[in-house]
Design a binder for these strands. Structure first.
Length: 413
DNA sequence: CCTCCACAGGAAGCGCAGGAGT
DNA sequence: ACTCCTGCGCTTCCTGTGGAGG
């Protein structure tokens, strides 16, 4: 047996070593990442109090009400609930109360069976229930509550993604009736209010025993939030006040979304690290905005069905061509077009790419979805136009959308 | 006032893929 | 392995709507 020869690497500093010794504006980068949950949630004291009070029933060995929490993305729904749950876990373990909670992201568990399975796994961490039937999982969950006289709290984030919510809620409320001790409580979180209207009336009344709405943050609130986070995430004096107020203002005018505000600051910090200026100012935030926006656009576009991408491509193409739409008062608005016009352009494009075409009915469906995603803005025609149609405008820069789509469509053809 | 235009969007149904039940 | 069922993407058909134009 011959000794293994040691490989001799050229004497260049390891790139990770370089990375480590490189100077950075960050003190603790995790704090400014989108997934971080701060221990204090400014401007959500009222909501925290409400959830806490609702769940407080378990201290008296009673079943808490179900909750339905609604609000746009980045308004602190998930953070609030997770925060309260952490406190609750802490509280009940100190007092030895039979309370267990489980957080489920319904996007990765989008059916009744998967939700129940996920819950069961978290209550029996040592066992693996893979392959068991739906009814077994359900019974096992009930008996867990019954035998331990435990109050179970299930948080269903993005509850609108569950295909059979009605059945899930029905089973659970029936389960609650069967239990002689213990209970199961649901906290549903959604950013889609129309979801509530689609529910079976019985599901609706049981899920919405208590309802809460999270309003978007305004610019001042966002600024405070950012300030607090930046103080901990960045090194001292590496962030200018202007940078924070700009990031807050940009996020506020977009949607009041705290996540984008945080992402802006994170990206701005990365940019400052790259060019080694060691200072995060409003210029870096401005740059970050372009980069974050591009990323959002790209990630949204890449998940669209191909046909819908073509529709959007038709819109961006028309939007870039010189024509504008003349309003009643003689004003000319650029980049606005009729839906019929877009459909025609779409048909032409599909012909060029030699793909099948969708009908105008489904085309309108696609337009509605694009509006929901915020990729386009839609208004009714109103006066000055014959017939009833809609005026459509891109929500983002036409050039960016077009080039992103070209990349995406190139992959396909 | 009526009619036509240019759509909007609901309802029903169709073909298909992928699970669940047997 | 086989049916049966169900959700999904889409088409077909249809009724409704707001404004222009006669």
């Amino acid at each position: 047996m011959s000794a293994v020869k040691k490989r001799v690497w050229p004497k260049v500093e390891n790139i990770f070593e370089q990375q480590l010794t490189k100077s950075t504006v960050f003190l603790n980068k995790d704090i400014i990442s989108a997934h971080y949950i701060p221990e204090k949630l400014p401007f959500r004291e009222k909501q925290i109090g409400e959830v806490t009070q609702g769940l407080g029933a378990v201290a008296n060995n009673a079943k808490p009400n179900n909750f339905f929490i609604y609000g746009k993305t980045g308004t602190g729904k998930t953070s609030t609930v997770k925060h309260v749950l952490e406190q609750l876990d802490d509280f009940v373990s100190k007092r030895n109360l039979p309370v267990s909670s489980c957080y489920v992201n319904s996007r990765s568990h989008p059916s009744k069976y998967k939700v129940l399975l996920k819950a069961l796994r978290s209550f029996y961490p040592e066992k693996d229930f893979l392959g068991y039937s739906a009814s077994f999982v359900y019974e096992k969950l009930l008996s867990f509550a019954n035998e331990n006289a435990a109050h179970l709290i299930l948080v269903l984030d993005e509850i609108d993604k569950i295909k059979d919510v009605d059945e899930l809620m029905y089973s659970l409320s029936r389960g609650n009736d069967e239990l002689t001790s213990g209970s199961i409580t649901i906290i549903g979180i959604s950013n889609n209010l129309t979801f509530k209207e689609k529910l079976d009336p019985r599901t609706k009344s049981s899920l919405c025993e208590r309802e809460m709405v999270f309003d978007p943050y305004n610019a001042t609130e966002l600024q405070k939030i950012l300030q607090e986070r930046c103080d901990k995430a960045f090194k001292e004096d590496s962030v200018t006040p202007g940078a924070i107020s700009l990031a807050a203002a940009l996020a506020a005018q977009e949607s009041g979304d705290a996540r984008t505000a945080v992402m802006l600051m994170q990206r701005a910090g990365e940019i400052a690290d790259m060019d080694e200026t060691m200072i995060v100012d409003d210029v870096k935030v401005e740059k970050a905005k372009a980069s974050v926006e591009e990323e959002i656009i790209l990630s949204m576009i890449s998940t669209l069905p191909q046909q819908q991408q073509l529709v959007l491509y038709a819109i961006s193409q028309l939007s870039l061509s010189t024509h504008g739409f003349t309003k009643v008062n003689g004003e000319v608005e650029k980049g606005v077009m009729f839906s019929g016009e877009i459909f025609e352009a779409y048909l032409q494009l599909a012909k060029k790419f030699d793909v099948r075409t969708i009908t105008s009915r489904w085309f309108r469906q696609y337009i509605n979805e694009l509006e929901m995603y915020g990729l386009i803005l839609v208004t009714s025609s109103g006066k000055g136009v014959k017939g009833q149609t809609r005026l459509i405008k891109l929500g983002f820069d036409a050039g960016k959308i077009k080039s992103a789509l070209e990349k995406e469509l190139m992959k396909a053809f």
